[in-house]
Design a protein around this nucleic acid. Structure first.
Lengths: 244, 244
DNA sequence: TAGATTGTTAATCGATTAACAATC
DNA sequence: TAGATTGTTAATCGATTAACAATC
């Protein structure tokens, strides 16, 4: 099954809808939310392989998490399975996509057309998740007007006007941390309600209706260095105890 | 205080060493480890601003975490503070740097010289955390020989030989997910013990002495979409209840 | 010494796992 | 109906917060 077919599973008509899904929880913990994209990916893979149904215990073996956790996680949003049968793969995929807003057609801009910004706009990740990258912005007049992966670079002073006219939902911040706070405030005023922040600066936003997700690559690298350092230290200890 | 001066705080001679630090814990939970890089960043900032000492409650206000958590976190690694005084900023910074392996001089290569690989190699993040990016690798002969941010692109078939000769610790995977598993196995055979994985493929490594940190940008984007979707849904509910 | 603040233990809270009744 | 597997409740485990004795 190819990508287009898998994508089409999200459209409701393609899967039989259960009518009496129980009321989902009012609040779902972030521990659960962070796991949803991983279910999304594995379900896509299962559809691709033509798998029609799956039980929590079978999925637990593939994903290396407990079957209990899978059932608990899914039940935060209502009953997606059927006793004695398991889960319909396409239906579950459609439901999780719905929860994650894959069919929301969110519109995004990338602020900062440097290396990272250009790398991201070329990444198929946005399209796969139903997010449209409609423009890039940069302060450097030399690159304004360029087109990267079909997306053109606009001058930074058109930022507010563009966001308002084009109903931008998400701004990806790939600019220097020094201007991150100021640009964020301008974006929020222009109606942007999601910030995907790569600047490393921790943003201050009074408006509770604006969501921020920080991607701190340096922090991630450091946890790897911690693990390696730990391993080195324990190796050294072993060496020592061998010597004595 | 400039960056070089801050970096020099890590060298032991620059801060008075407490002699009787209690024995640190044998195992520290990943919840704590993930917070360490953030302490590292804030402490750097404090040093930059010339702050000499800080109490857990003062730091808690700046970092927006509880003072209790700060003290618990730090005490996993031994007593870095002094009753009635608080923490010596430079000393604490030096200690956390040590724990995170900032002075280990880890050597890294970037496998895949596409957009993301080039964006990462140009990022000052590696240098700031004491990791050397010594080479890039790519399968595309047209870009082999190029130099990005002073780092040259090598042909992929020299991978094992290069890693062994140059004692490479870390490999950053910025190549297509299709070849991720195969390349990882080659890297592990060549003695690489840290994998920073951007491919989105979940890697299978039998060797327990190899550490993997996955960066899944798509998953991160989806959690933002979830939040926005939630907000939209609750807005709609409000609209409805207003209508009735 | 008195005041401040850590280090550490105990209490609480939340998340994961286990168990099983409901039911397809 | 019998077997399978969910949905859900209860038990366990781990992480966070609160409290306070130790001590600088």
């Amino acid at each position: 099954m190819d990508n287009r077919e898998i994508d089409s599973c999200i459209e409701k008509n393609n899967v039989e809808i259960k009518e009496d899904t129980p009321m989902p929880k009012a609040y779902v913990s972030s521990a659960v939310i962070k796991r949803l994209p991983r279910y999304f990916r594995y379900l896509r893979e299962l559809i691709r392989n033509g798998k029609m149904r799956i039980s929590s215990s079978e999925l637990s073996k593939i994903m290396k998490v407990s079957a209990s956790q899978i059932r608990q996680d899914l039940n935060c949003f209502g009953g997606f399975g059927q006793q004695g049968y398991g889960y319909n793969v396409k239906y579950l995929y459609a439901k999780i996509s719905e929860i994650l807003g894959v069919n929301c057609n969110f519109r995004a801009i990338i602020v900062g057309a440097g290396n990272l910004g250009r790398a991201l706009v070329r990444n198929p990740m946005f399209t796969k998740r139903g997010v449209y990258t409609v423009a890039m912005f940069d302060i450097d007049t030399r690159i304004v007007g360029n087109t990267v992966a079909g997306v053109s670079v606009h001058p930074l002073d058109e930022l507010e006007d563009f966001c308002q006219r084009n109903f931008i939902d998400i701004a990806v911040l790939t600019l220097p941390k020094e201007s991150a706070q100021e640009i964020t405030e301008r974006l929020v005023k222009a109606g942007v309600c999601g910030i995907w922040n790569y600047t490393g600066k921790e943003l201050d936003i009074p408006n509770k209706d604006v969501k921020i997700v920080n991607v701190h690559l340096g922090d991630s690298l450091m946890t790897l260095c911690y693990e390696l350092n730990q391993m080195r230290n324990s190796d050294r200890k072993k060496e020592k105890s061998k010597d004595n």
